[in-house]
Nucleic acid binder design. Structure first.
Lengths: 192, 192
DNA sequence: CCCTTTGTTGGTCGATCGACCAACAAAGCC
DNA sequence: GGCTTTGTTGGTCGATCGACCAACAAAGGG
């Protein structure tokens, strides 16, 4: 258990945050190991020694991403008093996140690697699994409050809205513009 | 005007369609020149001689894409008797396209290059411009039929839905599942 | 104080990237 | 039938990709 051997000169948590910044800016395939090594302040050999590989590092980055940027929308969905309020708050928390001035304006889970070279299929599948998890969280929150016959449709609909919002933010839409979209999306709730 | 010099051995239209297939499958950065040369049945030097560069080829590919895959939703938007019908038909035509069994299940304009390396910024901007054009076409179709105060919001909302549908299709959603999303999205229309 | 353990440094690996060139081939023009 | 024009072939360019290794450095254990 004791700290044998030469101590690490970098802080893994800090390095992971720095890697997140780079991946967030350029996506998975758009980020090279030299980009990462430079941003993290270490050599690529240290990345391999501690994180395993580019893909291994990315998976840990996405874990950090889910625990930080992903948490507010998840909490909003969980804490909403009614199902309607939960969805509304989740959409607004999402809009807050993807227009945050200190970060790139999109959700990594959705746009960090939707397409790409054949050899990176596993990364795309990993992100697709995360998106499916998003759908399931929404579906579970609504399970007790909407008619079972419409549960899948409504859950998928609001998942679709979240994903569309990410593209909108990527294209420069402001927080206020996303709010108008959310207003339209919530109008559908009242009609269902 | 006359055909001087050695005649071309490949048909540019056919080669462009073959390039479209490859770019569609792997996105912009995920496709290499050797991928393209192999699929088009020519050497990379011929690509440079006729299409200029990888980016030049991609722009011509997107022009073909817009004129083929992009046309049905555009026509549906144009030909709808009422604004509501036009939007509804456009969404359904989009769903038809992005679940077409012979093509990858997503819209290239939206997901072929949302993120990537710094040096390909021009390509991303090119696609972002195309997405903005999509928004403007929707907005123009609605201009005479919805209250001016809500025109921007509703146009942006349905643009958002289209973009979300593309992510859904990419993740394996079926045509029937997309139809349920469209039903929800159209419910918002009646409430506005 | 040496030995083991762990981490970093600097370099290198084969492969591939987008881009392009010189040499050759095939047509029309005069 | 040369000459010009155009397109293709085969090869190569420097750069970079992800991955990894041998040598060295810094700690604790005995």
């Amino acid at each position: 258990m004791a700290t044998r051997g030469r101590p690490r000169t970098f802080d893994p948590d800090i390095a992971l945050r720095q890697a997140l910044d780079v991946f967030w800016e350029r996506g998975y395939e758009g980020t090279s190991l030299s980009d990462l090594a430079e941003a993290m302040g270490i050599r690529s050999a240290s990345i391999y020694a501690y994180f395993g590989s580019k893909e291994g590092l990315f998976r840990q980055v996405m874990s950090l991403y889910g625990a930080t940027a992903g948490e507010p929308p998840r909490r909003a969905l969980r804490d909403g008093a009614t199902a309607r309020e939960a969805i509304h708050a989740m959409l607004r928390a999402t809009a807050d996140q993807i227009t945050h001035p200190e970060h790139p304006h999109y959700c990594m889970l959705i746009l960090a690697a939707p397409t790409g070279a054949v050899e990176n299929h596993a990364v795309r599948q990993f992100l697709a699994d995360g998106r499916h998890g998003m759908y399931e969280e929404i579906r579970e929150r609504l399970a007790d409050d909407v008619p079972p016959a419409r549960l899948d449709a409504i859950a998928r609909y609001y998942t679709t809205v979240v994903q569309g919002l990410s593209v909108q933010a990527r294209d420069g839409a402001t927080r206020a513009e996303l709010e108008t979209v959310i207003t339209c999306a919530m109008a559908a709730w009242d009609a269902l």
